[in-house]
Design a protein around this nucleic acid. Structure first.
Lengths: 141, 141
DNA sequence: ACAATCCTTGCAACATTGTTGCGTTTATTT
DNA sequence: AAATAAACGCAACAATGTTGCAAGGATTGT
């Protein structure tokens, strides 16, 4: 299965006109295999022994994947970026996340839409929305 | 006006059974005088020359004020906490913020309520919601 | 008023997360 | 296979926040 994801990852990267390096493929395959949004550290720990990347390289590869819209970054209150693969083309401007206040896991809530029955102060312009629901996940609750 | 706020701040602190030190009063008065949520650095810069506090003392005083529910912390995507005075008793669990993507100012959107017509995955428990609307403020737009 | 106590402060050091500069290596193109 | 441009690894740096500890100041009890 991971092998299949490697091929998928490689395809995704090449379709975006980027170099399909072992690092990028490995990182994207890890993110594709994981439901949760992963931190830099979690990704690093899951890298196989045959693919040990430098911290900086990992940061740069993630940044590159974000730029190519293959993954997206999730803000959190613990000052740590989390990354999640963009499986289908989804509306990135209407995207909510759930964070467990106990174990800190983050998942995407794709079906949560936000109604815009409110308005900003005069002169303010809307760009995007960032919504995090906090609570306890199934394991911690 | 700042003098009046100092008295208000002192009252608020004493009502919570805490020591009304010059630092705490000054910090709370600054936050009461400001509409925007302020970073640690912004607060530090606004401290008068007669009240220069150590970085750590400022962090600890802010932490204390948060614990006493006199101010609240706002998460942001730039990994910096912002602090905002709790003027009235407002529902802290339904509290949205606006952040300007240009100048990084953060304000509270008190009138924005979030409808709960959605549900979490099975076994997940809701605790609170964190909503940040991003866009351009009146000055930058 | 004085001493005991407890909270607060300041300093130094540390921790975490992420970024930048630069020379070297690697993937892709020709 | 050689040339070229991109990606990598290392070291150093930057920003934000935290911890330990000794010194200072306020509060309480006598």
């Amino acid at each position: 299965m991971l092998n299949k994801l490697h091929i998928t990852a490689e395809d995704m990267i090449q379709q975006n006109g980027g170099r399909a390096t072992a690092g990028r493929i490995g990182i994207l395959a890890i993110l594709l295999a994981e439901q949760q949004a992963m931190t830099h550290r979690e990704i690093e720990q899951r890298l196989p022994g045959t693919l040990q990347l430098d911290r900086v390289t990992l940061y740069r590869a993630l940044e590159w994947l974000v730029g190519k819209n293959l993954i997206h970054k999730v803000t959190s209150d613990d000052r740590v970026w989390r990354y999640h693969a963009n499986r289908e083309v989804h509306n990135t401007h209407q995207h909510a996340h759930f964070k467990c206040t106990c174990c800190a896991q983050v998942i995407c809530l794709d079906d949560l839409t936000i109604e815009r029955n409110w308005h900003l102060p005069t002169g303010y312009r809307f760009q995007e929305i960032e919504l995090t629901v906090k609570g306890l996940c199934a394991d911690c609750g």
